[in-house]
Nucleic acid binder design. Structure first.
Lengths: 201, 201
DNA sequence: GTCTATATACTGATAGAC
DNA sequence: GTCTATCAGTATATAGAC
């Protein structure tokens, strides 16, 4: 239930965001949204064409927020490794899963080009952003040049998405952290050998 | 629609397995199962107590099958690295997602200890199996001893689960492969330096 | 903008005939 | 074992009063 000071469309969008995160698109009914938002049926259908329309607004906002959250960490200063590490170790509501990534398991979202678009764009953006940082890192001699930045970036995003799966499977946020530490250990081993880097200078 | 030679309970379980894979628990109705199985309402409720009971039978079988499929690759001969690589590169119905892992995004599955148990057990088993293989690999000098087998095993499972997310997000199986190649590249860089391994012998 | 009434189809199940 | 009938409740709206 949101503050009365939030407009009805706002409350509907925010309620939809929460319910989509918690129950997915298939598991979220207009009625549940209305009750959560404290809005009537007519009110919802006055402001939005229907469930897909409202979901689209909610998904777009969630996607945008996720990009902003990631950018806040990835756009920081520090070495490439430090920024990737900061991204992986940033605080997360691990047991709730990724509000964007979970939508890929929703058949009705995947079946709709419109609903899927913000998901695709966000994960693509994240992978490309990480790839750019990794490329910088390679150029600076932080990582061995043998790494393909795009492949490693994909592995990073996948580890995070899969980390949510492991955490939810075992009902322990620690399972997420374990996977992330495994990835960081592998990434750390790809630091360009210091001795060689030094001798190359 | 299954062969008439399959018993009704069998057809119901197999139909449930397919629908759970495709639409999840929340998105799968008893009616849809019955139609897919070519069975009537009464028939389904005669053999199973209800939707959760039937889903449990289906999930258990899917989990068992996944363990068998993984074991067929992981139990093979070859170096630890080769077996992990074979597991990661094995053929998959990538765009359909992981029939076990996708259940972690199903609120009703996660909320039920009984339905969640086979999921937890399977992913735990897979991580432990991989950890054992990695430990072997470290003992044989294939990987640097600085790696924690359990952490890396978690990262491997997570990359696979997240690979499905990336593939479904972009509707391209290649996205899965890209993430896997990234992980394999990182893992390859953790091969115990050959020169040092030789000099240590 | 919000409300109530109404509508069709589906959900998940029970009852009892055959 | 399978079938049809029935049921209370939900899903996803539309219509029209206020």
């Amino acid at each position: 239930m949101y503050s009365v000071r939030m407009s009805t469309p706002e409350r509907l969008i925010e309620s939809t965001r929460e319910l989509l995160w918690e129950r997915g698109y298939v598991g979220t009914s207009p009625k549940a949204i209305q009750q959560h938002a404290g809005a009537g049926q007519g009110s919802m259908y006055h402001h939005f064409a229907g469930k897909p329309d409202l979901a689209l607004a909610a998904i777009r906002r969630t996607a945008e927020e996720m990009r902003a959250t990631a950018e806040a960490v990835l756009g920081g200063s520090g070495s490439a490794h430090a920024r990737v590490e900061a991204y992986l170790l940033r605080e997360r509501d691990v047991l709730k899963g990724c509000p964007v990534g979970r939508l890929t398991m929703d058949p009705d979202v995947i079946a709709s080009d419109e609903l899927r678009a913000p998901v695709t764009e966000t994960l693509d953006w994240l992978r490309d952003r990480l790839a750019g940082i990794l490329e910088e890192g390679i150029a600076r001699g932080e990582f061995t040049a043998s790494l393909d930045p795009r492949e490693v970036a994909s592995a990073i995003v996948a580890t995070v998405q899969g980390g949510y799966v492991l955490a939810r499977s075992s009902c322990t946020p620690a399972a997420f952290d374990t996977a992330v530490r495994g990835l960081l250990a592998l990434l750390g081993a790809c630091a360009a050998a210091p001795s060689r880097a030094v001798s190359a200078n």
